[in-house]
Structures are given as structure tokens and as C-alpha cells.
Design a protein around this nucleic acid. Structure first.
Lengths: 213, 213
DNA sequence: CGGACCGTTGACACTTATCAAACGCGGTGG
DNA sequence: CCACCGCGTTTGATAAGTGTCAACGGTCCG
């Protein structure tokens, strides 16, 4: 996550590095959220930075036309809730039972500095996602999504999706029907196997990568 | 651009704040680029942060299928080229004659801290753009684009686009034909007037905003 | 005058959204 | 134990939107 440029000795203090890597510096204890419970909501004041301890989080915005766009999923170790402006413009919800550790930004404003790598990481993810969403067909988006989830699950060939179809659809800018059809296509080509609604098994890694042009 | 959280006294040093607001702290003199000239390219080492002095910049990536996606446009005052990892994953090019000031990140790595607001700003823009691109129709995307350009031109009703149609298309995830058709639709509804290929005049601001759901 | 470049317009094909229905599964209650 | 219901997913038919291919028009410049 950290880059050569952001390596030790760059002005980022050691305790913050530790915090970033999972230390418990100045943080509240982990609090638990149930499925669908909101961690922060659009319009609320920004005052905390959050880190997923276990489970998963979706960050989304609802447009005036009623459509929901999931901007990002966050999993164990990911920081989120970092933004400029004093009010949240998005909503963060737990997916399943989720543990969140938060740190207060007001009390300790210089902590922002330590969070720079996390912000850069989020920024990078947003750009990657933008590419997938804008210039790929439905099947290609789903393929990219599966690879992303596989990677986040430790590059495992077999894994369970945290989220239902509607979340996948709202993340990829598709409808649930199109997501479902795309999965079926990949299944029929023998590239993946589906184990129930959430279970994914990648049979042909190469073929999947080939789709993600 | 700066938020309450990032106001003075937050640990960001005064010289860096000055730098961000346009001061000339530790920066090289402005260098000039001609239309289409690259400022950095995908694969190059990350070593500088850049700031647009005049003109405009497009940051894009080319996918394996040959399609180009413009991730962001940057105008006077905007910082760009900030990312994690040690190699650029995108290419930045001047649009028209453009002045760029750069600062060396290696020599002065703690400067990253002062750039945090700029990174947050870029992150925020990327997310906004993601929403426009994923959940809006062609006309709505073009409408949002015109409002964005109007805002960047100081909320002026009449302005000139910096970039040709192909850039607009690659920014919005559309084809030049669809962009052209969308502009024609807006023109026919009396919402905008077109003054040559680059000139835009917004006749009904409200109607345009109404399209951006 | 001719050509190159950019933008517009038109015809058509293809992808995906929409609307609708069926399926599978877990839970509840008779 | 089994029928029933609710929910999420899948599948099907159709329509709308956008991409593709092609032609045309305008401007700039040699």
C-alpha cells in the first residue's frame, strides 16, 4: 500500500504508520454493526475516519432519480470515510455483521497526515473502477469484478461474495438482470462455476483476465 | 478547497498552505507545453507533483482494447499527478498551450503532507465523475459536463470549451457522435446555444441542472 | 482550387434496460 | 411433515438507447 515515496523517513510519523498498519493508536475500540446498518450518512458532519476490522462496507450515493451508485466496497484493513468538505456526501453501510474501528479527526487533526496513503489508495481504486465502468461491456465488468473480489479474498480461486446481486449491479452500473445474465454466460463458457447465490469458483483465471482488457 | 478540518492549525505547515494557494515555495519556474505534449506518461516514475498555471490538462488511460478514457481535466490552479505506487498509471497531456509548475517530491518528501487537500479534491472529483458516468443517460452526462465546464469557467453563462469533441466523448464514456447528438438535442430544446465547435452559451441554467438529477 | 480535419447527421445493428414470470430456498404455521 | 409464503435470483420477451458505419458540410491551409 505504501509507496517508495511514502516510505519511512518521509515525514509521516512512526505512530501513524503503525496506526495504518493496524495498530491501535488513539483509536476507539471496535464497534459492531449489523447488516444494513449505517456507519455514516450523507449530510452528516465529517468527524471520524473508519477502518474495517472484519466484514465489509458499501459506500454509496443515491441520485435524484432514485438510482443508487455504490462508489466502493471496503474490506478488512481498508480505511474509508476520508473526504474533503465538512459534510459527508455519501452513505456507508455495513454488509453483514461488520466490525469498525474509528478515530476522531477533530481531537487529533494531524492524523490526516498519516491517512494520506489511505486516501491515495481510495483515489486509485476509484480511478480503476471508473475505467471498468466506462469502457467495458457488461460481461467484462462482471469479469473484472470477480477478479477484484478474488484478489481481495487473497487471490483465492473459490470464494463467497459478501454482497447480494443488487449491490454488484449498483457497483458496476448495471441492473441485477444483466449481472445475472453475465454470470450465466461466464458459467456456460466454463470460465466460472456458481455455488449458490454467493459462491464463486474461478475455473479459468486466464480467460477471466483476458476479458478485462 | 480546504475544509474546516484542514484549516490552519491542523498540522499542515504554513509554507505548504501557501504553496497550495499558489505561492512559489520551492517550485521550479513554470514550463510551457504545446497542444498534445505529454507532461508525464504511463509507466514513468512518479517524482513530481504538477500544478496547472494556465491552459488545461487531460489525464487519461488507454485500455488494451484501444479505448481511451479521460479520467480528469485539470485547469488553472489544479494539482495533478498525485498517486500512490512508484510508476504513473496514466498519461497527462497539455490541451492547447499550457503552463505547468512542478515540484520535486523526492527532494522534499514531506511536501506530500501539504498536498493532502489536493489529493482529497482529486478524489472527490473522481467520485462525482463516477456518478455522472454510471447512472446518467447521454444527454444527462453532456448536461453535467457543460455545467462542470461552466463552473470551472467561473460560472459564466457563455464560455469556450478547451477540448475537442473526442476529448468530451472520452471523458463522458460516449462516442463523438453521441456527444454531438446530445448537444443538438439541448440546442433544439433551447437550453443552450452553440457558437461554433467550441463556444457554448447556456440559455436555461435551471433546465440544464434539472437534467443532472 | 483541393485536401485534411473536425463536427454533424442519418441508417442500422447491437447491447442493455425494462417489464414480466418462473424458479429455488429458507422460514413459518397448520 | 408438508403446504404456503416471502425473498433473492434466474430466465424470457420486448423496447429503448447508444455504438458503428457511412456520408455530408464547414473551416483552415497549402
Amino acid at each position: 500500500m505504501l509507496t517508495s515515496i511514502l516510505a519511512p523517513g518521509t515525514g509521516i510519523s512512526a505512530p501513524l504508520m503503525e496506526l495504518l498498519s493496524g495498530g491501535e493508536v488513539e483509536s476507539k475500540p471496535t464497534s459492531s454493526f449489523v447488516d444494513g446498518q449505517s456507519i455514516y450518512s450523507s449530510g452528516e458532519r465529517v468527524g471520524q475516519a473508519y477502518r474495517v476490522e472484519f466484514g465489509a462496507v458499501r459506500v454509496y450515493r443515491v441520485l435524484a432519480n432514485g438510482r443508487r451508485q455504490i462508489l466502493a466496497f471496503h474490506f478488512g484493513g481498508n480505511w474509508f470515510g476520508l473526504q474533503n468538505g465538512d459534510r459527508h456526501r455519501s452513505t456507508a453501510e455495513a454488509i453483514g455483521v461488520t466490525g469498525i474501528r474509528s478515530i476522531n479527526l477533530q481531537k487529533d487533526p494531524h492524523i490526516w497526515q498519516g491517512l494520506l496513503p489511505a486516501v491515495l489508495e481510495n483515489f486509485s481504486s476509484a480511478q480503476e473502477h471508473q475505467l471498468v465502468i466506462c469502457r467495458q461491456s457488461a460481461v467484462e465488468r462482471v469479469a473484472a469484478f470477480l477478479l477484484e473480489m478474488s484478489e481481495r479474498a487473497g487471490n483465492s480461486q473459490r470464494f463467497e461474495l459478501f454482497m447480494p446481486r443488487v449491490d454488484v449491479a449498483d457497483y458496476l452500473g448495471l441492473t441485477i438482470e444483466t449481472v445475472s445474465r453475465s454470470l450465466t454466460k461466464l458459467k456456460n463458457k466454463g470460465i466460472i462455476k456458481l455455488h449458490g447465490p454467493r459462491g464463486i469458483e474461478i475455473m479459468q483465471y486466464r480467460a477471466l483476465q483476458g476479458l478485462c482488457l
